[in-house]
């Protein structure tokens, strides 16, 4: 029983990170129709930048804030320099562009920072807490709370602010949105910035647990992508459900089946879901018009 609880707790921690990654995918996908393979790099950059900030003597909150702002600026730049100029390109081209961006960012991070593995102490110390016979790191609570807060703030943003509603309208129908006076270019930039910032948040929260290095982005992107697809690409709620589900399933697999094949879960699941439920668990169904 305590084993199960242990696996659930670690699964939820990882799942919260996946959910944030999937949320980042979702925001960009909704705004631009692009699946951004560089999403994992934002997470890596958030972790690396915070690690270097702390190492340079900055207080943790400042280092974290700078990492978030810097990554968000990079997200906006990515859109302006690589995605916006390729509007309307076929899916294959867009895949290559965002993978190219991921490779570029990975190379740049390796050069700008270094190629070592980095971590910093958890925000509330390293002493594990005991809950019903299972243990949990205080940093895990930070991750889960951070993800919850991010989702809550985003929900408020989309449902209560005019800008948030403009983003939703643009996702729904870009042409109609631009006709009613919404600046869809600005919305695109905002979406990329927001998505990058969310990635950075995930990265800086989870680095004390998982550590980070310049080349961790691709694997993160793939898992987050799997989570987004699982929940249904384009649905923020789907991102949350898909992320948590994936995290827990991975933890259970690692615990009860084989830790080597825990990453296989996401991909087996994704092939099954796509085959039998092509829209994901919570995605919208679309009909082709002829």
């Amino acid at each position: 029983m305590s084993d199960l609880l242990q696996f659930l707790l670690s699964g939820l921690t990882v799942g919260a990170v996946y959910a944030l990654l999937a949320l980042g995918f979702t925001i960009i996908f909704n705004a631009s129709g692009v699946v951004n393979f560089a999403q994992g790099e934002f997470v890596m950059l958030g972790g690396m930048a915070t690690a270097f900030g702390i190492a340079a003597g900055l207080p943790v909150p400042l280092a974290a804030l700078l990492a978030i702002l810097g990554t968000a600026a990079l997200g906006v730049a990515l859109n302006a320099l690589a995605i916006a100029p390729a509007r309307g390109a076929p899916v294959v081209s867009l895949i290559i562009i965002t993978i190219g961006a991921a490779i570029f960012l990975q190379g740049a991070a390796g050069l700008l920072f270094d190629k070592q593995i980095h971590r910093y102490p958890g925000f509330s110390g390293e002493a594990a807490l005991r809950i019903l016979g299972a243990t949990i790191l205080p940093q895990s609570l930070w991750v889960i709370a951070g993800a919850t807060l991010t989702f809550a703030l985003l929900w408020l943003f989309f449902s209560r602010t005019l800008t948030g509603k403009a983003v939703l309208a643009t996702a729904n129908n870009p042409l109609a949105a631009s006709l009613v006076g919404i600046n869809t270019r600005a919305i695109m930039a905002l979406s990329f910035g927001l998505s990058a910032a969310i990635g950075a948040v995930a990265g800086l929260l989870v680095t004390p647990i998982t550590m980070t290095a310049y080349n961790t982005g691709v694997a993160l992107a793939l898992s987050g992508f799997a989570a987004a697809m699982l929940g249904g690409l384009g649905s923020p709620l789907g991102a949350l459900v898909g992320g948590l589900l994936l995290g827990v399933l991975e933890a259970l697999t690692a615990g009860y089946v084989s830790s080597q094949y825990k990453d296989a879960v996401s991909f087996i699941l994704i092939i099954l879901v796509l085959t039998f439920l092509p829209q994901g668990l919570l995605g919208r169904k679309s009909t082709d018009r002829v």
């Binding site: 690589a82 290559i96 562009i97 993978i99 190219g100 570029f104 960012l105 190379g107 390796g110």
Partner: peptide, 10 residues
């Protein structure tokens, strides 16, 4: 190498 490759792709 990585930066050049990524840049060329984009």
């Amino acid at each position: 190498e990585h930066m050049v490759l990524g840049l060329v792709m984009i």
